[in-house]
C-alpha cells in the first residue's frame, strides 16, 4: 500500500518551496513602494504605472508578441507536417537524416543554433530584423511541435482514417475531416509550446535580430544586467500571471475535452 511518510511530505514541502518561493518573492516585491528593491516601503502599484509609460518595454512587448504569434503558427503547420512524415510516410530516401534534423535542434545548445542562423542570414545578405527572428524561432519550435504531435499520432487509431477513405474521402479530406480533429489537442498544445518558447527566447533572438527589432527578453536582459529593478519585477509579475492563467486554462480545456470525447 502506498503511503506518504513524513520524510516524503518534507521532501514535497521543501521542494515546492524551492520552486515557488523565488517567484513568490518577485511578485511580492513588485508591489513595493520603495525604489530599493530589498527594503519594504509599503504597498504600491506605482511600478506598474511606470511600466505602462515605458515605451521601450511596450515596443519590445509588441515585437515579441508578433514574432511569437507568427513563428508559432508557421511552426505548428511545419511541425505537424513533420510529425506526419515521421509517423506516416513510411520509408523514403533520407529518412534517417530527416529524423536527425527533427530531433537535433531539441538538444542543440542555443548559442550554436543562434550562431549558425546568423551566419546563414549574413551570407545570404538577408537584413536582420523581425523576419529573421521569426525564421529562427520557427525552425527550432517546429521540432518541439513535431515531437508533441507525433506522440499523439502514434497512439491514434488509424482505422478511422481508413474508414473515411473507404467511404469516399480523398487523402486531404480524410486528413482535415478525421485526423486533424482527433490530433487537435496535440496541435494546440504544440502551438502553445512554440508560442511560449518564442516568447521566452533570449539567446537565439540576440543572435538573429537586428537594429529595430528588440524583443522583450532582450530588453529585460539588458536591464537585468544593470541590477534588480522594481519595474522589471512588475513586468515579470505580469508575465507570470499571464502564463499561469494560460497554463491553467489550457489544462482545464484539455480535461474538459477528454471528458467530452472519452464517453
Amino acid at each position: 500500500m502506498k503511503r506518504l511518510s513524513s520524510i516524503n511530505i518534507t521532501a514535497l514541502v521543501l521542494g515546492f518551496s524551492f520552486l515557488y518561493l523565488p517567484i513568490l518573492l518577485l511578485v511580492i516585491y513588485s508591489f513595493n513602494a520603495s525604489k530599493l528593491v530589498t527594503v519594504w516601503g509599503g504597498f504600491s502599484t506605482k511600478w506598474y504605472g511606470e511600466l505602462l509609460k515605458n515605451e521601450q518595454f511596450l515596443d519590445a512587448a509588441w515585437v515579441t508578441l508578433r514574432v511569437a504569434f507568427v513563428s508559432a503558427s508557421i511552426a505548428t503547420v511545419l511541425g505537424t507536417l513533420a510529425a506526419l512524415v515521421l509517423v506516416r510516410a513510411g520509408r523514403f530516401r533520407g529518412r534517417t537524416l530527416f529524423t536527425g534534423m527533427v530531433y537535433a535542434p531539441l538538444v542543440m545548445p542555443e548559442v550554436i543554433t543562434g550562431l549558425s542562423l546568423l551566419l546563414l542570414f549574413i551570407s545570404l545578405g538577408i537584413g536582420r530584423g523581425m523576419t529573421t527572428i521569426i525564421l529562427a524561432h520557427t525552425t527550432f519550435a517546429m521540432c518541439f511541435v513535431s515531437v508533441v504531435v507525433s506522440s499523439r499520432l502514434v497512439s491514434f487509431d488509424q482505422s478511422v482514417e481508413e474508414a473515411a477513405r473507404d467511404l469516399g474521402c480523398n487523402a486531404t479530406q480524410a486528413f482535415f475531416l478525421v485526423t486533424l480533429p482527433l490530433i487537435a489537442p496535440a496541435v494546440i498544445a504544440g502551438w502553445l509550446l512554440a508560442f511560449t518558447l518564442s516568447l521566452d527566447d533570449l539567446v537565439i533572438a540576440s543572435f538573429t535580430s537586428g537594429p529595430g527589432a528588440t524583443t522583450l527578453p532582450m530588453r529585460i536582459y539588458s536591464a537585468v544586467r544593470l541590477g534588480v529593478s522594481p519595474e522589471i519585477n512588475a513586468l515579470s509579475t505580469i508575465l507570470i500571471v499571464l502564463v499561469t492563467i494560460g497554463v491553467i486554462t489550457a489544462s482545464l480545456a484539455s480535461k474538459w475535452q477528454a471528458t467530452t470525447t472519452d464517453r
Binding site: P22, L25, L26, P217, V228, I232, S236, I240
Partner: peptide
C-alpha cells in the same frame, strides 16, 4: 514561466 525571469528572481 520565462527562464530569464526565474534566473533574475
Amino acid at each position: 514561466t520565462s527562464f530569464l525571469i526565474r534566473v533574475y528572481a
